[in-house]
Design a binder for these strands. Structure first.
Lengths: 181, 181
DNA sequence: CGATTTTTTGAATCATATCAACGTACGTGG
DNA sequence: CCACGTACGTTGATATGATTCAAAAAATCG
């Protein structure tokens, strides 16, 4: 597995830098070694909509663009100063041939990401904003330690103001619960 | 490729029958040969939420459950009388070994499904209900030929009444446009 | 044909978006 | 170290648009 490192290029991205932008072809994909990213699109009204986050150990990039050399529809941006291990399409294919373990590792990560997509969609589609918030809090508490709330709001498909009010409502509920006990 | 058919079991599902239900382990996956399916979950209020549809040539089942033998969180139901070519996990693995073409075919379908998940999420998250409706109409016009509108509404994350009103609004707009020309 | 499913319509209600303003924290450069 | 600018979060008032509930009309199935 150490041989992998010959093929992986360490890339440093500062907060707010883009790993990938809409319209580009995704020539390299990267595994997040340190830091945090968001994938987003710009909707018809120029509003950024966050599709997902990537923390340590997740691949970033756009598979469709990477595999098929077509322009991506997504933007991938660092939310913190980050470190990514990058690999070009050619080196990726070489590694798959050369090191079976790499291939297995990679396929495993890809499968997980596939499962996660469906789960993400479930979160997006079911329940009220408040319920989504609570579910996310349960599923990914780490996120809230690292990601500003207005990004979480975008991920949940609501406005930052609404998220703020939801949180306020919930802390009030908490207080009432504690008092009555 | 003909050898595949020894391993594939043709299954007939009548309208409303389930291919998979929440809680079960997905022991076989199937490729839709004829017909149409929906994948849905039941949300906290007992409401069905449609995550996606599957028409001819798409796999149905739950990959996470299939690959990892764990209970699924999804329901997959036929919307028309349908015909599915099914394969068990064991046979699937055998076929992958035996017939490289099958493996390639399958991996290709899986990748597509992965890309589609992200695109689906983009649809779910960006724009107003009306914009989502128009986008879906553009992306998948075939759907509207086959799937009742209240299922489309669920897919778009809105109530059937709302979809009905959106469509009414749009036909009115159309009329006005045509008149003024 | 009768029964069920699907779509439409209306009226009232409710939740979120929007807009504007303010408070706060953060970090960088002077 | 302080000051300033930027990014982030909160709050209030209002408007907007979807939901809800009830009912009826239309389409489809057996």
């Amino acid at each position: 597995m150490e041989q992998c490192f010959h093929f992986l290029e360490k890339k440093i991205l500062r907060r707010k830098e883009h790993f990938l932008m809409e319209g580009e072809v995704c020539h390299t994909k990267g595994i997040v070694n340190k830091g945090c990213f968001r994938r987003y699109v710009i909707d018809g009204h120029g509003k950024e909509v966050i599709l997902n986050f990537a923390l340590e150990d997740w691949w970033i990039g756009d598979l469709d663009s990477f595999n098929n050399s077509k322009p991506t529809e997504y933007n991938v941006q660092a939310l913190e100063d980050s470190e990514v291990l990058c690999i070009s399409r050619m080196n990726h294919l070489r590694l798959c041939e050369l090191i079976p373990k790499y291939k297995v590792f990679h396929e495993d990560k890809t499968r997980r990401s596939h499962y996660a997509s469906l789960k993400r969609l479930t979160l997006a589609q079911s329940g009220s904003p408040e319920e989504k918030y609570l579910l996310l809090l349960k599923q990914q508490p780490q996120l809230f330690q690292r990601v500003p709330l207005h990004y979480i709001a975008s991920y949940l498909g609501i406005e930052p103001e609404s998220l703020s009010r939801i949180r306020k409502r919930l802390t009030l509920k908490d207080k009432n619960l504690n008092q009555s006990q």
